[in-house]
Design a protein around this nucleic acid. Structure first.
Lengths: 132, 132
DNA sequence: CTAGAAGTACGAATTACTTCGTTGTGAATG
DNA sequence: CATTCACAACGAAGTAATTCGTACTTCTAG
């Protein structure tokens, strides 16, 4: 069962922390994300409780300091958010989005461009046939 | 002077209406966007007043029915929102965003892929030289 | 001139997000 | 054993976005 509510900006920060560093306590997450911003510990705690309520994270409360882990995948979440963003902002046109994204500053390194190139070639091959 | 606050979702709908159909009265905008959703006329009016307050639209009130036009450009707005989205969701990696965008269903037609292809080739050429 | 239509302005309610202080509880330490 | 520390739980406040109803104004038929 997917399609949980999309994470809000601050929820996303916490999820990124869990995705990149694995399951963690509130304290641990808090120390990572409050390196930038000056938030209270209880702010992080509350967020993670809300996220648990929404089903965005799972909680192991067998220890006194509960351990949280992301309940949704990173790529999957990005994909959902991207689809929403693309329809809202680009009215569904992936190509316009891609072109603007590639136009920005130095988005992609040579090797990344190579990878994108391969993908485009593959898509062009797939698209040619009458395909559904 | 750019960098106005990014439009909210409902503000974006109104801007899209103005971008695509040119300057218009509240009534005209309302009829277009409430085709989908069942909103009150005063809701649209209020939104446009707020947008005027924020500087997102300009208003010609020489006629009784004020005529609004977008005060920011479409591409420019998309670019700003894309930059924000890319840093929030993809931590600044344009290539990951692009690859996911291209991976979706069959978003781009053959001719669009061709265009993207050209852009990628151009970027690869530009990127090769030690460039700044 | 008056009634109604069409417009604008404004206030207010609702919801969601973010933030923080306070409280209670269990563990650890002197 | 009493104090302190770390933690979870909660309530509450502040802000922003969205929505709508009401009131006021202006134009136009009759």
């Amino acid at each position: 069962m997917r399609q949980l509510p999309a994470p809000t900006p601050s929820e996303l920060k916490i999820l990124q922390c869990l995705w990149h560093h694995g399951p963690a306590t509130v304290r641990s997450v808090h120390e990572r994300i409050s390196a930038d911003e000056g938030l209270s510990y209880t702010t992080t705690l509350k967020q993670m409780q809300i996220m648990h309520g929404k089903g965005l994270v799972e909680r192991d409360d067998s220890q006194r300091a509960h351990v949280f882990k992301a309940a949704i995948g990173e790529a999957e979440t990005q994909q959902t958010m991207l689809n929403d963003f693309m329809s809202r902002v680009y009215e569904g046109s992936a190509s316009r989005l891609v072109m603007q994204a590639l136009g920005i500053s130095h988005p992609a390194s040579a090797s990344e461009l190579e990878e994108i190139d391969r993908l485009v070639q593959k898509l062009r091959a797939d698209t040619r046939p009458g395909a559904e």
